[in-house]
Write a protein that binds this DNA or RNA. Structure first.
Length: 645
RNA sequence: GCUGACGUAGCUCAAUUGGCAGAGCAGCUGAUUUGUAAUCAGCAGGUUGCGGGUUCGAGUCCCGCCGUCAGCUCCA
């Protein structure tokens, strides 16, 4: 070991010279005692290290504290809490095998190999035992070991051994001990188990070792941890809130859709109110597409297998295609379509195309069917029958950038209307691909140029593109923080080849067009599912299935209310009359629970004055009395501008 | 698909050790005519997901199927 001094730069810019092997804790002690008391871990040139880890190189050192803004401190806490969990489980089930136990976005998990799955009672017992582990305040001891020693230490833990053998020669192998529990672990950890404060075990479920369904199923326990009690409570409250926003629950309460046993899993039945939302989204998009030079096409739900063989779907996509329908006496079987591209290719190929015709933009709102694995189905967000807002653009290579630009503009327009946050993933050429490097260069440059011309930021997913072309994925986030794929823009070098598409150029020669697949909503099912959660069912006026509900105070004013309803309806407003023989309070409550944007009460005063007593959803002022004409103007203006509320 | 939990009226949920399937809301009928988040009464509503089995007796126990939910990527 070298006795040379280390030069460390502190976060305030001060340089200190210290002896080789000093621990961050001792360093903090030297700087000031208060710092040493508060620090929970340190960072050397951005790498998180334990407080007692000997420092062996110069660099920039920072300390992590409980109240740091970023996630690094929480990461350490949750990683340590996962070890506390494993410590507790091992003390109850000494023979439990251990898998991985990392911190994750909102907490941590640990995988165990046990004879029978954990019951809810087991989880309670584990949580109690964890509290004892915390109370024991055992230090987390880090130790570097030789490979052979690690092999012996984990000789009973096949999963750890497997991981151990993957660590390259020459890399440090570290183990962490707290009390009786020893784990192969890169760390870092809190100083001791006592530093784990507020945690909760959430649930357990089976998880394949390394996510591979051919391998053993372990039992994964999920939990979360925070430094402050209030943060834990806030997190649990958010989970509860997310549960209430669940589109499956709201969809039932507001009678938007259902999934019926007798129809089949993953197949959405759109009830009138849900269908109205789909209709409105569809009309909004279709109007935009007409302005942007798209042509509408319609294609059948089924086609001969030969079509999908030519497109390559039968070879590459067959596991999600429903089985063939036999057709007696026909030369070929039929298949339900999982995508629309083959049909649009076929339409394009049906006639001669001139370079003057390009770009050709075929748009279709189409029903596709995919036999997704049963366990992956999830309400409207993952279904077997989906309604895509699909389009295929055929253009010259020099038109690609402008086309992409136009699509990103459409995405911004549509998503902005809903106030949805989204981000872009730009997936570039994979190792295994078709097409020359020159083609890929041009394509990627065009995509990048279009994104940058719009001033958007994006993440690059190197090698994430399909073998047939690069793509831009638009990801948006639902109420529980899950990220879903929304819009997708995808270049395709394969299908124009397979369908031998061409156009006649100004040189009177045949040329291959570039093809772009794109969807804006993605699917109406998923998009509306996310919108339900995004708005918690309280849709902006222009999307609300019922925009105004009128409540006559007594039966004497039903006629007056009916006249108001007619006037509203003639102005294009979706209006409903609640003339049930219930109290005003009852009907107001019902209207509020149904999240109707405007409730209008009509009694003697309003009938006499030609006004409506308007109650706007979510408004500060509970009630405003407006002349009918003014009310109509307010509602229609809000509708026209697609105001968010 | 796999592992586990679950499946009772339209909805949300009850129903001791196996012992007469219930409540609230919604619905229907009647009364009430109501002024901004639940008026009162009555009625009706079920092959307890489906099919087998054990038992004198099954919502409850056993087997099979269907479905729902959670998880199965986040690399010691």
């Amino acid at each position: 070991m070298s006795a040379a001094k280390l030069k460390l730069e502190l976060s305030d810019g001060k340089q200190v010279e210290v002896e080789h092997g000093i621990s961050p804790h001792d360093l903090a002690q030297r700087v000031n005692g208060e710092l040493a008391d508060r620090a929970i871990a340190a960072k050397l040139d951005g790498e998180i290290v334990d407080l007692d880890r000997p420092l062996e190189r110069s660099g920039r050192i920072e300390f992590l504290f409980e109240d740091d803004e970023d996630q690094d401190s929480l990461y350490v806490l949750r990683h340590s809490t996962a070890h506390v969990l494993a410590t507790a489980v091992r003390s109850i089930w000494p023979d439990a095998g251990i898998g991985f136990g990392p911190p994750i976005a909102d907490g941590f998990y640990y995988d165990f190999d046990v004879d029978s799955p954990f019951t809810p009672e087991d989880l309670e017992k584990i949580e109690e035992r964890m509290k004892e582990v915390v109370a024991a305040d055992e230090p987390f001891e880090r130790r570097e070991v030789e490979r052979q020693e690690a092999r012996e230490l984990f000789s009973d833990d096949p999963y750890k051994l497997e991981r151990l053998e993957e660590i390259p020669e020459g890399e440090t192998i570290s183990i962490y001990r707290d009390g009786a529990f020893v784990d192969l672990c890169r760390g870092p950890h809190l100083p001791s188990t006592g530093a784990v404060k507020h945690f909760k075990i959430l649930h357990s479920a089976g998880a394949y070792w390394r996510g591979d369904e051919r391998r053993a199923m372990l039992q994964r326990i999920y939990g979360t941890a925070f430094f402050e009690k209030k943060d834990l409570e806030e997190h649990l409250r958010r989970l509860e809130e997310a549960r209430k926003r669940d589109h499956r629950i709201i969809g039932k309460q507001l009678d938007l859709f259902s999934i019926q046993d007798d129809v089949g899993p993953g197949l959405i039945q759109w009830h009138p109110k849900g269908a109205m939302i789909q209709f409105l989204l569809r009309r909004f998009l279709e109007d935009e597409l007409l302005k942007r030079g798209y042509d509408f096409v319609y294609s059948p739900h089924i086609a001969r297998e030969a079509l999908f063989r030519r497109s390559g779907h039968l070879q590459a996509y067959s596991e999600v295609m429903f089985p063939a329908m036999e057709s007696e006496g026909e030369k070929d079987n039929y298949r339900l379509k999982p995508m629309n591209c083959p049909f649009h290719m076929s339409i394009y190929a049906s006639g001669q195309r001139s370079y003057r015709d390009l770009p050709v933009r075929y748009a279709e709102i189409a029903s596709d069917y995919r036999n997704e694995k049963s366990g992956t189905l999830h309400g409207m967000l993952r279904v077997r029958g989906l309604t895509m807002d699909d389009a295929h653009i055929f253009c010259r290579p020099d038109q690609v950038e402008d086309e992409i630009y136009g699509m990103l503009d459409l995405v911004a327009n549509i998503y902005g209307t809903f106030g949805l946050e989204y981000r872009l993933d730009f997936a570039t050429r994979p190792a295994k691909r078709i097409g020359s490097d020159q083609v890929w260069d041009e394509a990627e440059d065009a995509l990048r140029a279009a994104i940058e011309r719009r001033g958007l930021t994006y993440a690059v997913d190197p090698g994430g593109g399909a073998f047939y072309g690069p793509k831009i994925d638009v990801k948006f986030v639902d109420a529980i923080g899950r990220e879903w794929q929304g819009a997708t823009i995808q270049l395709d070098f394969v299908l124009p080849e397979r369908f031998d598409l061409n156009f006649v150029g100004s040189d009177n020669q045949k040329h291959r067009p570039v093809m772009i697949h794109r969807a804006i909503y993605g699917s109406f099912e998923r998009f509306i599912g996310v919108l339900i959660e995004h708005f918690a069912g309280a849709f902006p006026l222009w999307l609300a299935p019922v925009q105004v509900r009128l409540i006559p105070v007594t039966d004497d004013f039903i006629d007056a209310a009916r006249e108001v309803a007619v006037a509203l309806r003639e102005a294009g407003v979706r209006v409903e009359l609640d003339d049930r023989s219930e109290t005003v309070s009852y009907r107001i409550r019902d209207g509020e629970l149904q999240k109707i944007p405007y409730l209008g009460v009509i009694g003697q005063r309003e009938a006499d004055a030609g006004t409506v007593a308007v109650r706007k959803r979510g408004a500060e002022k509970k009630q405003v009395v407006l002349p009918l004409a003014e009310f109509i103007e307010q509602v229609t203006a809000e509708n026209r501008t697609r105001a968010l509320g």
